[in-house]
Design a protein around this nucleic acid. Structure first.
Lengths: 149, 149
DNA sequence: TTCAGTGCAAAAACTTTGCAGGAGG
DNA sequence: CCTCCTGCAAAGTTTTTGCACTGAA
């Protein structure tokens, strides 16, 4: 676990240097909280969480840093139809997509290798250079128990 | 074209009656503008467009009506990662998904029958009752000409 | 007549921006 | 020492809400 954190910190540092961004304590403070956050989170949510934990990092810096973390692939942006950006850690995780229960709001993950094939085909066909994709399925947990936890 | 409009109006009227919603002129005024709108639009965008055309329908009613039109499947909600809800007409159209150029912002459509199969399988596997899905591919037009129009 | 629906404006939720001061390279 | 980065607060954008009034059934 801590190895992962160290690796992420190194990756971020390298990315900042490569892009001639400055290495600031605030940016690493944000990264630290991101790494400790379980599951998906919104930018403002993370900011509030940091404020609660007596961090002095400003809202602007949190938004800015999350953007940088996305650019260096430590984070991925997600949209689940609620008009806010969700972030999720990409560190040590394989490709996956999301099932969103419109009843309880829970987000489950799945992965299917054929999706990659479809995407490649579509992009080839239409002369498109892939950078990212999002695939979300909305519906309801069939087992009502699943909604209660 | 006008046949389609008439059909949509009938469908909406039926839907409202079935759900014990009231039939109001404002709701049909919104529907009229929706049907005349080419391509995707945001709720506020439609509201502004209506105001420009001297409509007196309020913002609240526009939002409310778009929600209703989504529930009766005349419209579909889409999210393209810009923190606003895009609506698109479902009337007389087949299933399709979206390619979004991050360079020029253009949205192109594609369809692939295998996607439906994947979705069905995933839902079966995880005990999930499908209601909707979204599949967006982000990237850039390979041909720079495509970005200029 | 009754209550869902409406208009309006204010608030809410999330994100971006402007500016002056501060610190990284 | 030159900027990029930061904090703060204000403004921006999209959506939701509260309230009193109105009109569909």
């Amino acid at each position: 676990m801590k190895i992962n954190h160290k690796q992420a910190i190194e990756d971020f540092k390298d990315f900042l240097k490569r892009g001639k961004h400055r290495i600031t304590p605030e940016r690493f403070e944000v990264l630290e909280h991101v790494l400790n956050y379980k599951g998906h989170f919104g930018a403002d949510e993370l900011y509030i969480e940091m404020k609660t934990h007596k961090s002095n990092v400003s809202r602007a810096t949190v938004y800015n840093t999350l953007e940088l973390l996305t650019h260096c692939d430590l984070l991925a942006k997600r949209n689940f139809g609620d008009n806010k950006t969700h972030y999720e850690s990409n560190f040590n995780r394989k490709n996956h997509d999301h099932l969103i229960c419109t009843n309880c709001g829970k987000i489950r993950e799945f992965s299917n290798p054929e999706i990659q094939t479809i995407i490649t085909n579509v992009c080839d066909e239409l002369g498109f250079e892939l950078s990212d994709y999002s695939f979300n399925i909305f519906g309801k947990c069939k087992n009502p128990e699943d909604c209660k936890q």
